[in-house]
Design a protein around this nucleic acid. Sequence first.
DNA 1: ACTGGATCCTGCCTGC
DNA 2: TGCAGGCAGGATCCAG
Length: 305
Amino acid sequence: MPELPEVETVRRGLAPVFENAEILGLDLARPDLRFPFPERFAERVAGRRVLSLGRRAKYLLADLDDGEVIVAHLGMSGAFRIETDGEAVGGEAETVAAHAFVYPRSQARAHDHVVFRLKAAAGGVPMRIVYNDPRRFGFMTMVRREAIASHPYFRNLGVEPAGNALDGDLLARLFAGKAAPLKAALLDQRLVAGLGNIYVCEALYRAGLSPVAPAGTIATKAGRASVRAERLADAIRSVIDEAIAAGGSTLRDHRQANGELGYFQHSFSVYGREGEPCRTPGCGAAVARIVQSGRSTFHCPRCQK
DNA sequence: ACTGGATCCTGCCTGC
DNA sequence: TGCAGGCAGGATCCAG
């Protein structure tokens, strides 16, 4: 599920319930996910209030009222769902849109690993936020707010791909002199933080750039932006912004009848479309799949140079 | 300094 | 129908 647009969608879905809520307790179904949970995780979280739910790259950050931050990464298959204790929630289900729907309380499902039990808001019902992760590539830890910037997870993270931070000049500077293919450079979280396999493929298609072209070819000899760099920066911003607006992409996750979650997957131009026609008008070539550093790359061999 | 490959784990799809 | 093999949205570590 989760590249940046999906994580942002999760954040927006959880925030109305999680922010300002008091955590009554934490239930852990096992001692670890990808890594062990932090020492005394449940005790440190119990009784704390969540001040805000933020995001950096693909990380979720829940700021607590004692200066600690719960840091969560969804890995490949992590997902949150919100449950009530069975009462109808009326309009609240609408507020909590996109990737986090409010479900009636249910029996624990397979691969439910963490449950945050929340105190009922005034006039509301108690909520539970459940973390489910079949592959357990996700992880959670706790870091003090002032230590976030220097923490190993964050200190080497590159620029956010959405918003105004990323432009052709910056991208050209980051990629100047690099022999690695554009695909690999865009997946490198130290350069641009938050892109994953899907959105890299889509951005390269939009920019008309070959995934195998050396990253340094988007910079001039002086390290300045070229037309290619500007096109790529524009493509990254537009694909990420559009995907966030669409609620992210939902793949292999269709188990819930009411959970037609994100819908950006319907807008893919190349990802998962091997053998299908390129969508560029008049192109007519078939989308190709190649493997770069062990992962599938989808591209149009005719449009992308 | 880079790069590709292996690795963690489970589920699902394909092909024999 | 059963089962082996391959593949999947991530990110780190290691050898070359």
